[in-house]
């Protein structure tokens, strides 16, 4: 009997099934409620308001920029993390920890940390302000930086996973055929991990688009400059719940679109 046949023949105890059903409800019911209570009739009008459009353009613009930055920074970092497998334990673990921290850190902490670095009295910010008159916090650039900080690990781990599952001997083969290290990376490594890069980029984009805590802490909520969709949605909840729900629906739609793009590839828990 095949493994799949054995698995489907196995039966779960009923308490396991019952609790799993409750778990599904926890995950799905809020979204059902959001869709059910949405002001569908007024939706076009709500989404066409200038404040919403402003937030929409800002959110997509910053999330795309953050994703591009993550690609530029994250692919080499993923290559280094994969390469670090051969390193001694301590530096290897430190590198991995540095990449993992933003995943487990509350985003607000990330925002405060960014302020401590780049704020007017920050480690680098004070010098930037004095030497060049550059202020980073509470600008659109700060929104992008906050998004990069929280989204980068998603890209790095997706690409690193692709590197790990690829046959590294192709790189050795390329070297014996006269390829320099850069040519190996450019002509062999990068094309082979391209699907991982694409999946990582999509995950990175959604994480950046949904960023709230680090953004509001480090960049604030200035309409048109730093007030992204999640922040606009949260603020609207105080004044115009219909608008908040409309914005939430918009973000939900984007998430579902991403889910459909990725299907079963590269989602957390997938084995490939």
């Amino acid at each position: 009997m095949t493994r799949a046949a054995v698995r489907s023949a196995g039966r779960l105890a009923w308490p396991v099934v019952a609790i799993a059903v409750v778990a599904i409800a926890v995950l799905v019911l809020p979204l059902v409620a959001l869709v059910a209570r949405a002001p569908w009739a007024e939706l076009p009008e709500l989404l066409a308001s200038s404040a919403v459009l402003e937030a929409l353009v800002l959110s997509f613009g910053t999330a795309i920029l953050a994703t591009l930055l993550c690609l530029v920074l994250g692919i080499p970092l993923a290559a280094l993390v994969a390469h670090a497998e051969a390193w001694p334990t301590l530096p290897r673990r430190l590198l991995r920890a540095a990449v993992t921290v933003p995943l487990v850190l509350p985003p607000v902490v990330g925002g405060i940390a960014l302020l401590m670095l780049l704020g007017r009295r920050g480690l680098i910010g004070e010098w930037l302000d004095r030497a060049f008159g550059i202020t980073v916090p509470f600008t659109t650039g700060a929104v992008v930086l906050a998004q990069v900080f929280v989204a980068l690990p998603f890209l790095v781990f997706a690409v690193e996973g692709a590197l790990r599952s690829s046959d590294r001997r192709t790189e050795a083969a390329a070297a014996t055929l006269g390829a320099s290290r850069w040519q190996v990376f450019r002509h062999v490594t990068l094309p082979i991990v391209a699907p991982g890069v694409a999946a990582g980029g999509v995950l990175c984009f959604t994480r950046a688009l949904g960023e709230f805590g680090a953004t509001i802490t480090f960049a604030g909520s200035l309409p048109g400059t730093t007030r992204t969709l999640p922040i606009a949605s949260y603020l609207a909840m105080q004044t115009d719940p219909d608008e908040a729900v409309a914005l939430a629906l918009l973000l939900l739609a984007v998430s579902i679109a991403v889910l459909l793009t990725l299907r079963d590839r590269w989602l957390p828990g997938a084995t490939a």
Partner: peptide, 15 residues
């Protein structure tokens, strides 16, 4: 890349 040594790898390892 500078040795001029050609290799046919086990399982061939084509790109």
């Amino acid at each position: 890349e500078r040795r001029r040594v050609g290799v046919v790898f086990q399982d061939y390892v084509l790109f």
